[in-house]
């Protein structure tokens, strides 16, 4: 057994190699082949990297060890205790003694349910932009959504906007100035809830939307009231 790392020169070349690798570059061949020490050091470095491969590949290990169901549930149970009601949105009443409100979280849940009732879209983040705690203050509703592959994006965005406008009008007294839908991605839908590739495109006769990144159909023009 030869201690090839015993001398400073060897350590130096490992530092040099390390700098290249950290920049995501390969050391130049001339450097590696410049001396026997350099070649040995390079070979040693490669062996460590090979061995490290499986240690570093967390994805593979993770795929083999899905979370136990009870474990996930205990996280969810803990998380449920963390209440995030958000702001208090007033409902009007003639009596001065009445304090009627709906929580922001309840309204966001309502918007989400409305979004989920629209075929072909999945709603993401929803923001109520405006001073919702002041009765009558104008509010802009901004939502992100994903549209299933094969659906007509402007058409789906419009259906989503209509559904949100309808539910907010029915259940709240918010003065909705606009509903802005931003389609942040397009995603594939499984044909059936079966494990497997499941990546067949939607039964879509619609237009393939291609890359939907950052498309905001009708952004800002969707007056709901």
């Amino acid at each position: 057994m030869t201690d090839i790392t015993g001398d400073d020169r060897h350590d130096d070349i490992l530092d040099v190699y390390g700098d290249y690798l950290d920049r995501g570059e390969q050391p130049p061949a001339e450097l590696i082949e410049a001396s026997a020490e350099n070649q040995l050091a390079w070979a040693a470095l490669l062996r460590v990297r090979d061995a490290a491969g499986s240690l570093v590949d967390l994805e593979a290990e993770a795929a083999e060890n899905p979370l136990a169901s009870g474990w996930v549930e205990s996280i969810l149970a803990n998380v449920q205790r963390e209440v995030r009601s958000g702001r208090s949105i007033p409902l009007t009443h003639p009596s001065p003694r009445a304090r009627l409100t709906v929580t922001e979280a309840a309204v966001l849940g309502l918007v989400r349910a409305a979004g989920d009732s629209v075929d072909g879209v999945l709603i993401g983040r929803c923001v109520l932009d405006g001073d919702v705690e002041q009765p009558g203050a104008p509010v802009r509703v901004r939502v992100e959504a994903s549209v299933f592959w094969g659906e007509n994006i402007p058409d789906r965005a419009e259906a989503l906007r209509a559904a949100i406008a309808h539910t907010l009008l029915e259940h709240t007294e918010l003065t909705v100035e606009s509903i802005d839908v931003t389609v942040t991605d397009v995603h594939l839908r499984r044909q059936a809830p079966v494990d497997g590739d499941g990546l067949a495109p939607a039964d879509g006769d619609g237009i393939a939307p291609g890359d939907g990144d950052g498309i905001a159909p009708g952004d800002g023009d969707g007056s709901a009231r």
Partner: peptide, 25 residues
Amino acid sequence: VADAVAALPEGGDVDTISVQISRIG
């Protein structure tokens, strides 16, 4: 709530009655 409070035998002043909707549906 307002009716029930008004019907209390001892009566008394009512300060506020707060109703908060925390979830819809």
